[in-house]
Amino acid sequence: MPPEAAPLLNAAGIEAGYGSMQVLWGVDLDVRPGETVLLLGANGAGKTTFLKSLVGLVEARRGTIQLAGDDITHMRSSDRMRRGMTYMSELAVFPDLTIEENIRIGAQALGHADPGRRMEELYQLFPVLRDKRRALASSLSGGQRKMLGIAKALSAEPKLLVMDEPSAGLSPLFVKEVIRVLSGLQGRGLALLIAEQNISFLEVATRVFVLEGGRIRFSGTVVEMSGNEALHRAYFGLK
């Protein structure tokens, strides 16, 4: 992807928090079309708050958020989704609904598009879900729930998929499976923003932003991060 590509997502100077507690302090981050960006940080760094500010679940007290050149800073979450941004939380799915119901809910933002067609495409991508489509999401293993969460998010055919800790609660084996799935999504025109503390996700990243104490401490390519010895020492404890 050419480095001069205009950002699909551009967050500038984002400040946010909860009540009197400020969590984010002037966070800048951008994602280009088709790119995979990793937001790396330990627990408590502010990753979830930042993602929620992007999708409209937490109000940005200062700063601006643009999607495809349009200011979405004060839009409702549903309107941001219709414009092409979907969010996959750590929980990812509705456990008391079936697999098929979860995917259909995710497809509601398609409007007049055919959700049945999209569902068939997703079953081809995740064949294990087709076999269990009438089962409750609560009956799935942790790894299968993550697959369903990704399918649910993809059902709206987003331009940008925002993911909060897709490795949460998974064994190393299932983490590798999630990374394999995400690798397979690359090259399809979909941009990914993945918030993680697991450095294994550097494998699929184009660029990396490191968040600490609500501030961006590093931004650059994976190669540039690999060559930064001070950063490696500071974040050696990240798994």
Rank of each mutant, 00 (worst) to 15 (best):
M163R: 04
G214D: 11
I216K: 07
N198R: 08
L161H: 00
I194P: 06
A205L: 04
G187C: 03
P172I: 13
S226N: 13
R207H: 07
L173R: 15
K176D: 14
P172F: 12
E224V: 12
F209G: 04
L170V: 07
E203T: 10
A195R: 03
I216W: 03
L192E: 03
S183M: 12
E177M: 09
V208R: 02
L192R: 02
L192Y: 03
L173D: 12
V210K: 10
N198D: 15
A153F: 01
A151Y: 03
P158F: 00
V222A: 07
S219V: 04
S183Y: 03
F218C: 15
F209C: 04
M225D: 08
S167A: 13
V178Y: 05
L154K: 02
G169C: 10
F218R: 15
E177S: 09
E177P: 01
L193G: 04
S219D: 09
L185N: 03
A156T: 00
S183N: 11
L161D: 00
V178K: 06
S155I: 01
V178G: 03
L185E: 03
F209P: 00
V204P: 01
E203W: 07
S155G: 09
G187S: 07
A153H: 02
V204Q: 01
G169M: 11
K176R: 14
T206S: 12
A153C: 04
R180G: 13
E212V: 09
I199Q: 12
L160V: 00
G169R: 12
P158Y: 00
I216Q: 09
D164N: 09
N198G: 04
S219L: 02
E196F: 05
L211Q: 05
R217S: 10
F201Q: 09
M163S: 08
R217F: 01
K176G: 06
P158A: 00
A195S: 14
V162M: 05
I216G: 09
E224F: 12
R215A: 15
I179E: 11
A195C: 12
R188T: 11
R180S: 15
E177V: 06
R215Y: 11
